[in-house]
């Protein structure tokens, strides 16, 4: 069981430098050939200041920025029985190559649901990202499920 007293707990900030190469690599991995992810001129023609980011690119902030794994370890979640139940992004301001984003994660909620396979525990993580100018750019809400 995940300790429900952990709701509201905040984790230390983590930062990620947004680089052109990683954006191109990620766009290629998801099979998206749109020029705005590869070619700066094409991105500028569509009104971006640098290469555009695919909508789920912020998963890279979470995975390489490192907060996600720290939270999983802190909550003593069994990775072998963990599912990613849901994911939501709220895009507040554009993020571009050259930006450094800083994420602050807190545990938004922990609750249980009973289903066919037993009791499932839902852990909702809320991460707010700011850029190097202190502007709020993105909110990431991840729901993890610990199955029994």
């Amino acid at each position: 069981m995940v300790d429900k007293n952990m709701v509201g707990k905040e984790y230390p900030e983590s930062t990620f430098d947004v680089e052109k190469g990683k954006i191109r690599e990620f766009a290629n991995a998801i099979g998206d050939k749109s020029p705005v992810f590869y070619n700066e001129r094409a991105a500028k023609d569509e009104g971006f200041e640098g290469l555009a980011l695919p909508p789920t690119f912020p998963t890279v902030f979470a995975m390489f920025g490192g907060t996600m794994l720290k939270v999983i370890a802190d909550l003593k979640i069994n990775m072998a029985k963990m599912l990613h139940g849901g994911q939501e992004y709220e895009y507040i301001k554009p993020v571009k190559p050259g930006d450094t984003v800083t994420g602050k994660t807190k545990i938004g909620n922990i609750f249980e649901k009973s289903g066919k396979g037993g009791t499932m525990e839902f852990i909702v993580l809320e991460t707010t990202y700011t850029n190097q100018n202190g502007e709020k750019v993105l909110v990431d809400t991840s729901t993890l499920i610990q199955t029994s």
Binding site: G31, P55, T141
Partner: peptide
């Protein structure tokens, strides 16, 4: 990400304000 491609193929790359699954 693949679902996102379906959405941005239609609304473009600057339009998304929220995306949840």
């Amino acid at each position: 990400a693949l679902t996102g491609r379906g959405v941005t193929n239609w609304v473009g790359h600057k339009a998304l304000k929220k995306f949840g699954v």
